[in-house]
């Protein structure tokens, strides 16, 4: 179809309304497919193999070694997932409250929320992790009850701080991005501010918050390796142990990132939003994705 055909179809000659022509042969469009993961996997293994081949040590085959260490590494990685999921859950819950605090009608609530958000959003993640590690006690006693705080719990708390601040900004941004007409319509129907927020504004924000929220989750999952620096036995720590036990082979550091690739790719590509809210909330996204 020629461009003019599209114009007649949509009855417009406004430049912004003209539908872009479909890409014809010769144009290159890159889309990440699951099999790309296997390409990366092979690249890692082959390079590991080369690294092995150029060393002249009398060692067990690289694959034997990897298979032997696999259960332990996998256990370590699951620990990373637990840390990231918990940090995300805590960060999202507290961050959402903080984000709503940033748009509160009470001046001091708004200012305090803003200050907390800015402080934790603009501090390096590693610093916040150390902050949690060394400032939190190893156990807390409430009444007669003593709750131990092992390192991994402290790591969760430390990582949930930047997540919280980022979620706070995501929530605030999404709320402010809605047209003011939505507020006015709700107000003119005698909704209270609370009802307006919960029934009208926030449900629409979910759609807007989902992509940045998934980004944050992917970034957080990658950042869980920071916990190895403060001594939590997660996958990076265990990789280091395997590395020293098996005699300094470099392929370990090519192998471990694959866990992350597999997980993050799956999580971001198949997150529920794509399917659950297709008709309802994500309707417009669907329209954007659909070609002419």
């Amino acid at each position: 179809m020629k461009r003019s055909d599209y114009q007649t179809e949509y009855k417009t000659d406004l430049p912004v309304m003209v539908t872009p022509l479909p890409k014809t042969g010769g144009s290159f469009r890159f889309t990440l497919k699951p099999w790309h993961g296997f390409v990366i996997l092979m690249a890692c293994l082959v390079s590991s193999g080369i690294a092995y081949a150029v060393t002249d040590k009398e060692n067990a085959s690289i694959f034997e070694v990897l298979v032997r260490w696999m259960p332990l590494l996998l256990k370590g990685f699951i620990f990373n997932l637990v840390i990231s999921t918990c940090a995300m859950a805590i960060g999202t819950a507290v961050g959402a409250a903080l984000g709503l605090g940033q748009i509160s009608l009470h001046g001091w609530v708004r200012k305090a929320s803003w200050l907390i958000t800015q402080f934790f959003r603009n501090s390096p993640w590693l610093v916040l992790l150390f902050f949690a590690m060394f400032l939190l006690p190893f156990e807390i006693t409430i009444g007669g009850l003593t709750i131990p705080l092992p390192d991994w719990v402290k790591a969760i708390i430390g990582l949930s701080l930047p997540v919280m601040a980022n979620v706070s900004e995501i929530v605030r941004g999404a709320v402010l991005s809605l047209p003011s007409g939505q507020w006015e319509a709700a107000e003119s129907l005698a909704y209270t501010r609370r009802q307006t927020l919960w029934l009208v504004i926030l449900p629409q924000c979910v759609k807007r918050m989902l992509p940045p929220w998934m980004n944050l989750y992917a970034i957080l999952t990658m950042a869980t390796v920071l916990a190895s620096i403060v001594g939590v036995s997660e996958v990076m720590t265990l990789t280091g142990q395997a590395l020293s036990a098996e005699g300094g082979q470099t392929y370990w550091h090519r192998f471990t990132p694959l866990f992350y690739y597999c997980f993050s790719f799956t999580a971001t590509r198949f997150h529920g939003g794509r399917y659950i809210w297709k008709r309802n909330i994500l309707l417009s996204t669907k329209h954007c994705l659909r070609g002419p």
Binding site: P179, G181, E184, A185, A190
Partner: peptide, 21 residues
């Protein structure tokens, strides 16, 4: 009491402002 007032006074806007969800 704005809520009581707005229960008595309806409003329709230029941009419709329906709740899209």
């Amino acid at each position: 009491d704005k809520l009581e007032l707005r229960k008595k006074v309806g409003m329709v806007f230029q941009q419709y402002n329906l709740f899209p969800h």
